[in-house]
């Protein structure tokens, strides 16, 4: 009842502020469209598997600039490929040899194909360019950059805008004295936090659905899995953004200070979310990734959108996102103790 009052009030305020509402929905759409138009290349060292390679052929190949693994059978190589220990493997059971790629990162795909061309060149008579047969475990050869970046960016923009709007509105509640007013009513602290989460949660769900729908069906981003999962992931991600935003707003005295959290809290997440290949990040920094919510959301989104996986492959990421939200919620309630002990 009391929570519902809070939810209705928040939704009314959002609907009244047309410009903010437009920002939350149109800004991500605009940015995604621009990125779609812009992205459509850094040299990467592919991890290659070589299956049943005859010695006399090996002597002829140009095997530099790759990390190599040798396999007896295709089965073993395939296991490592789906376990992401390999980027691709080469089979020599026929001429010309064929290649099987993991396929979800177009950057890696490109690097693999270039390396294969180079490695097999000595085998080809007169330098002729025979077509090499390539199979993809996930994705396909025509997958664009955008298809790989897309899921991460989708998650990022949802996170970014929800973080900002929720943080600022809770900050305003504090600076205008209405938070104090709420605390002189019988409203409990957890009810305030829950009310905020449901109120913004409803709006976020609509926002996430529209943005995901637009990027997938209008911009034609690759979508192998179920739309419902994408929605579920984005909603859970925005829940972490919401709770983190509200939490950090207690450390800001005005809107400008809230914006100062963006380069500190929000932007770094994008570096560790898989937008850039994590293996090319310096080791002394790469431990940061698992501490950022976006890392898990991006992984889950990519699993659904690019690899077409279902529940069993994403539920762990979802649980971690939920755990982040719960942690932030508890800290929120604790932070409210500053204003009223009971």
């Amino acid at each position: 009842m009391r929570i519902m009052a809070l939810v209705i009030r928040i939704l009314r305020q959002i609907v009244r502020d047309k410009r903010t509402m437009a920002l939350l929905i149109l800004a991500p759409i605009l940015v995604m469209t621009m990125l779609h138009l812009v992205f459509n290349g850094d040299e990467y060292t592919p991890k290659m598997g070589l299956v049943d390679l005859p010695e006399k052929i090996e002597a002829q190949l140009n095997l530099e600039h790759a990390k190599l693994e040798y396999y007896e059978t295709e089965k073993l190589a395939e296991n490592d490929l789906s376990g992401k220990k390999l980027d691709a493997y080469l089979m020599f059971d026929q001429t010309p040899p064929s290649v099987v790629l993991e396929g979800s990162d177009p950057n890696v795909n490109g690097a693999v194909m270039r390396w294969v061309q180079g490695a097999l060149k000595p085998l080809q008579p007169n330098g002729g360019n025979q077509e090499i047969k390539a199979d993809y475990l996930f994705g396909s050869g025509d997958m664009g950059q955008f298809d790989y970046f897309g899921p991460v960016l989708l998650g990022f923009f949802v996170f970014f805008f929800v973080f900002l709007i929720a943080g600022v509105s809770f900050l305003r509640e504090r600076t205008t004295g209405t938070l104090e007013r709420l605390l002189t009513s019988p409203l409990r602290k957890w009810e305030i936090v829950t009310g905020y989460i449901i109120g913004f949660g409803i709006f976020t769900m609509i926002q996430a659905a529209i943005i995901a729908w637009y990027t997938i069906y209008v911009l034609g981003m690759m979508m192998e899995g179920a739309f419902g999962y994408v929605l579920l992931i984005t909603v859970l991600l925005s829940l972490t953004a919401l709770t983190l935003g509200i939490l950090l707003s207690s450390f800001a005295n005005n809107e400008l200070q809230m914006i100062q959290f963006i380069p500190i809290i929000v932007v770094p997440q994008i570096f560790f979310s898989g937008l850039f290949n994590l293996e090319t990040i310096s080791e002394w920094l790469s431990w940061v990734g698992p501490f950022t919510p976006l890392y898990y959301a991006a992984e889950a989104l990519r699993n659904v959108m690019v690899r077409g996986f279902g529940w069993e492959m994403i539920y762990k990421d979802l649980l971690i996102l939920l755990a982040f939200s719960l942690l932030f919620m508890i800290l929120n309630i604790a932070a409210l103790r500053r204003y009223r002990k009971i």
Partner: peptide, 22 residues
């Protein structure tokens, strides 16, 4: 200081606080 939601109408403010008090 007036603790009011200035982006809502007076009626909406009243409704909100009334609901808080059940």
């Amino acid at each position: 200081s007036d603790a009011l939601y200035t982006d809502l109408t007076a009626k909406e403010n009243l409704e909100f606080f009334a609901a808080l008090y059940g």
